[in-house]
C-alpha cells in the first residue's frame, strides 16, 4: 500500500515540476517549489516505511523544518527588490 501512495506523490511531483518549468510569473515558480518541498517530505516518509527504515525519518523532519526558510528568503528578496526599484523610479521622477 505504500507503493500506491508513493506513485501518487511522484505523479504530483512531476506535475509540480511542469508548473515550475512553465512559470509564467515568479510566484508560480515559488508555489511549485514550495509544493515540491512538501511532497518530498511525504515521499521520504512513505519510502522510509516502504523500505522498512523508519529511523531515516530524520531527513523528512529536516525538510519540514528548513524548507520554509527558502520560501521566506525568496519573498523577502522580491519585496525588497521591487521596493528599491520603486524608490529608484520615484527619484528619477523627482529629478526630472
Amino acid at each position: 500500500m505504500f507503493i500506491t501512495v508513493s506513485i501518487a506523490i511522484l505523479v504530483t511531483m512531476a506535475l509540480a515540476i511542469i508548473r515550475a518549468l512553465r512559470g509564467p510569473s515568479i510566484y508560480d515558480r515559488i508555489l511549485a517549489v514550495n509544493m515540491f518541498g512538501t511532497k518530498t517530505v511525504l515521499l521520504v516518509s512513505v519510502v522510509a516505511f516502504l523500505f522498512g527504515r523508519p529511523d531515516f525519518l530524520d531527513l523528512a523532519l529536516a525538510y519540514a523544518l528548513i524548507n520554509f526558510i527558502g520560501v521566506l528568503a525568496v519573498l523577502e528578496f522580491f519585496q525588497s527588490r521591487s521596493l528599491r526599484r520603486e524608490l529608484g523610479a520615484a527619484q528619477q521622477r523627482d529629478s526630472l
Binding site: T38, D58, A64, V71
Partner: peptide, 24 residues
C-alpha cells in the same frame, strides 16, 4: 517523529502560502 513532521508541516505550509499570496 511523524507527529513532529505533521505539526511542523501544518505550521509552515500555510504560513508560506500566506506569505506567497501576500507578496503576490
Amino acid at each position: 517523529k511523524l507527529l513532529a513532521i505533521l505539526l511542523f508541516l501544518l505550521l509552515t505550509s500555510p504560513t508560506s502560502s500566506y506569505a506567497l499570496a501576500n507578496a503576490a
